[in-house]
């Protein structure tokens, strides 16, 4: 097993954190992991992305040239990464924000209305967890349980109460990716 993923969006959407959760969860499952952010004179509202590798083997280059999976949180990220995804790869798109449609026919695209779902759950900031849930459902890189445990380790002790809504968001994201309609899930 060797998964190379890119997670990209606006700063503030939880893009870097989402990548850290995947890496940490991979570590908890005794996998080799690497996480590397793009960094620069970046600010809130600017673009941010990170590359995550989870593998059964020692990781050579931590740089991801041709991601197998891209989690796309906004339109500039779609433009940047659409052509990079390897043929046969997966693109999970936050369709609440990204209006543009993917033109490539050789990759699997999943439109997930992550922003809308998060809003209905009562906290727009869990949109990244909806995306993460979909990613985990589609790839099985790590279990959702490990991902939630990883989140619990990353956030401070005071914030443990937010785990429940994040877990719910991930579960709904997984169900949407599996083909259930959003409306049936949120009732």
């Amino acid at each position: 097993m060797h998964f190379e993923s890119v997670i990209a969006g606006f700063g503030g959407q939880g893009v870097l954190l989402t990548g850290q959760i995947i890496a940490y969860a991979g570590l908890m499952e005794d996998k080799h992991v690497s996480w590397i952010p793009s960094y620069g004179p970046e600010m809130r509202g600017g673009t941010a992305n990170c590359s995550v590798i989870v593998s059964d083997n020692k990781i050579g280059s931590p740089m991801v040239e041709e991601p197998g999976v891209a989690l796309i949180f906004n339109e500039p990220s779609m433009e940047k990464f659409e052509q990079q995804v390897r043929p046969g790869g997966i693109m999970v798109v936050n369709s609440s924000i990204v209006e543009k449609k993917v033109s490539r026919k050789d990759i699997h695209v999943y439109d997930i209305p992550a922003g809308k779902i998060a809003k209905q759950l009562g906290n727009e900031r869990v949109a990244n967890m909806v995306m993460l849930g979909a990613y985990l459902e589609l790839t099985g890189v790590v279990s959702t349980e490990s991902a939630i445990n990883a989140l619990g380790k990353i956030i401070s002790k005071k914030k443990q109460s937010i785990l429940e809504i994040n877990k719910k968001a991930a579960e709904i994201g997984a169900s949407v990716a599996a083909g259930y309609s959003v409306d049936s899930l949120l009732g």
């Binding site: 850290q20 890496a23 570590l27 080799h32 992991v33 690497s34 996480w35 590397i36 952010p37 960094y39 990781i59 931590p62 740089m63």
Partner: peptide
């Protein structure tokens, strides 16, 4: 280098 300083690994 900058890449190594910024990256996370176990």
């Amino acid at each position: 280098d900058g890449a190594m300083g910024q990256m996370m690994e176990a």
